[in-house]
Structures are given as C-alpha cells and as structure tokens.
Design a protein around this nucleic acid. Structure first.
Lengths: 179, 179
DNA sequence: CAAAGCATGTAAGCAGTTACATGATTGT
DNA sequence: ACAATCATGTAACTGCTTACATGCTTTG
C-alpha cells in the first residue's frame, strides 16, 4: 500500500482535495500511479477511517462541494515510521525485452523494424519526460536539501529512458552485422 | 497478457512441462514473473484451449505424471504476430524514491541511514544478478544473433541496478554537505 | 526423520486499470 | 454546440501474489 504513503507525503506538505491529488498523480513523473479515482478516493476514505487525516468540507457556489484533507499528528507519525523503514528494491519490467528475446524466427528487416519502432517510442518518452520536468512539475521545495532530492529523482527518470535509448541504439547497430 | 507470449516463446524453443516453466520463471533475470502456479498452469490451460499448444501426458514410475507442452503451428503464428507488433514502454517503479521524496522531516543521520540501507540492498541485488548470469541461466543460443540479444538483455538488467547504485552513491555524497 | 524435489492444481486476496455515473460551469 | 473543468464516487476487470492441498521419492 505505497500509494497511501505517497498521499500522506503530499498531505504532509499541505492540504489537498482528492481531485487535486488525482491530477498530481496523473501528471507526475516519479509518482507512477495513473491517478485513477478508485485508488485515490478509496485510500483517502481509508486514511480518514484510521484517523491519519481530517476532512473539511467546503461548500462552493458554482462548483460541487470539495473535501479538503489535512494530515493529523497520527498521520505524520505513520508517515515518519514508514520513511525510516527498509526501502524496497526498484522494479523494472520490460515486456519489449521479452519480445526481443524470442525474435529468432524474424528476418533481419522485421527485427530492425521492431527495434526502430521501440527506438521511436523511447525517444518520444524522453522528450515527454523533459517537458514534464521543465514545466516545473509541482514540488514542495522547502529546503535546498529537499530540492536536491526532488531534482535527483526527476533526473533519474529521464536518465532511465535515455539509458534504454542508448542500449537500443547500440544493440541495433551491432545487429546490423547479421543482416 | 504478456506471460502468455513469454511461455509461447519458451515453447517455440522446445517443449516444456508446467513445472519446468515455473522453475525457469522463478530463477530468470529478465522474465520478471514470480513463477507462481496460478499464472503458469492457468495460462497453459488457456493456451491449450485456444489450440496454441498440444499436451502429451507422460506417465512415470516414481513420480507423478507430467504434461509436456508442445507449441502448435497455430501457436507459432500467434507468437510471430505478437513479435512484430508495437512494443510496450518499459515500466519503472521505485517505491524507495517516493520514500526519499518525503524525507524533509528526517534529520541528517536518519536520512543517511535510509540511503545507506538502500545502497546495501542494491549492492546485494547487483551481486545476485551477476551470479544468476554467470550461472549461465538457460538460454536457447540457436544463433550468434540470438546470443547477442540474450546477452544484451541480461547485461541491461545488471546495468539497471548498477546505475541505481551509482545514483544513490552520488546523491548520498552530495547530501553530506547538508549534514 | 525432516526437508527438498517432482508434479499437478485451487483459493483468496491485493493493487491497479478503464470505464461509467452525475451535474453544474466555463471555454472554444 | 461540444468539450473540458470542477468534484465526487462506483463497477467490473486484469494481473499478479502468497498460501493451501495432495502424495510419492530422494537427499541430508
């Protein structure tokens, strides 16, 4: 249940509504959830049930009422306990690599087409990441230390795709010898 | 349903039983499924229902009967169609990075402990990957081209964790300035 | 004598996704 | 007129995981 702590993290910065959190997750580079309602609204209900957050319902004239969630002391303690607990290993899953693994039956052109198509996708992804990052994806920025960490995490994400790209290019070049 | 094609891939190399496939997935570096029964036996039932594989039941004296699965022409066609289809983007999810993102409330020592613990985990993972790879994780090796692809995929996996390791070390060093 | 291996399969559950549902308001 | 934004929530589904269940055999 990591999304629980991702949400608690945002609320430890400042109060948000479910709708806002949903948008944050949908645009985020490094918070990898899709930002679907089920998970966010559900987790918020759960956090409220366990008294990790409190709710303030704000009536509005022109728009539907919004629920502003604020972290409680209990919530801060829970978050802190998680933060100092054993981290998890990162997970990498590359379906495309499985595709590549079983290409023995393809001829040179088919194989190169596959790699070319992959290269284009990764290239587009690198550009998208850069854009998202330059668009200055919202960030707490409460201290130089925090800023360094957030920038490093974002750069790591771009580097991941750039690395994938250069891997693909190298392999593709080397495969030309078999054409 | 990528595991379906991962299994079809292995069967396009040579026939296997469910039990063998399960072990293959459990030990594999680059086929990231846990190798749990539900998925493998279930997928095999499915592949048989759609006539992508045929079953030969082999009675044994001392051990339970085994079902040897062989790919059919239909199965080879399905696999081939998938192989030349649009690849998927690789997925990276690092719960630990979310942990790092919300450490503003930790003091220098707590933060360094967290990073140190992460560094140790990744180091262990790199070693494990190397071992798995050197133990010559089974590989079709039907041609120089195929061998190059498989080696590249394995090396990519190690490089992924090595890259994570150097990222962690760099960030950790830079964070010492804030201590 | 216990643990691991051979070999199959089932049950229960979590995490995450897309799509549906409502209904006013604002922008193109 | 149509789409998007604001704001909440629900339903149905996929993918994947751990754990359970059986029962014989081999190894430590």
């Amino acid at each position: 249940m990591a999304i629980k702590y991702a949400i608690l993290g945002f609320l430890s910065w400042k109060p948000f509504t479910g709708y806002e959190l949903k948008k944050i997750f949908a645009d985020a580079l490094s918070f990898h959830w899709s930002g679907n309602n089920n998970q966010i609204y559900g987790t918020l209900v759960d956090l409220h049930r366990t008294e990790a957050v409190s709710i303030e319902v704000q009536q509005q004239e022109k728009y539907p009422a919004r629920k502003l969630y604020t972290i409680t002391d209990q919530g801060r303690r829970e978050l802190r306990a998680w933060l100092i607990s054993e981290p998890e290993l990162p997970i990498l899953r590359s379906i495309a690599h499985i595709q590549f693994a079983w290409t023995e039956g393809l001829d040179g052109t088919e194989l190169d087409n596959l790699f070319a198509s992959y290269e284009r996708m990764i290239e587009a992804q690198v550009l998208m990441c850069r854009e998202t990052m330059e668009r200055g994806n919202l960030e707490p920025n409460r201290s130089a230390r925090e800023h360094l960490i957030w920038r490093s995490i974002n750069e790591y994400h771009i580097a991941f795709y750039e690395n994938e790209l250069s891997w693909t290019k190298t392999l593709r070049t080397r495969l030309k010898e078999f054409a």
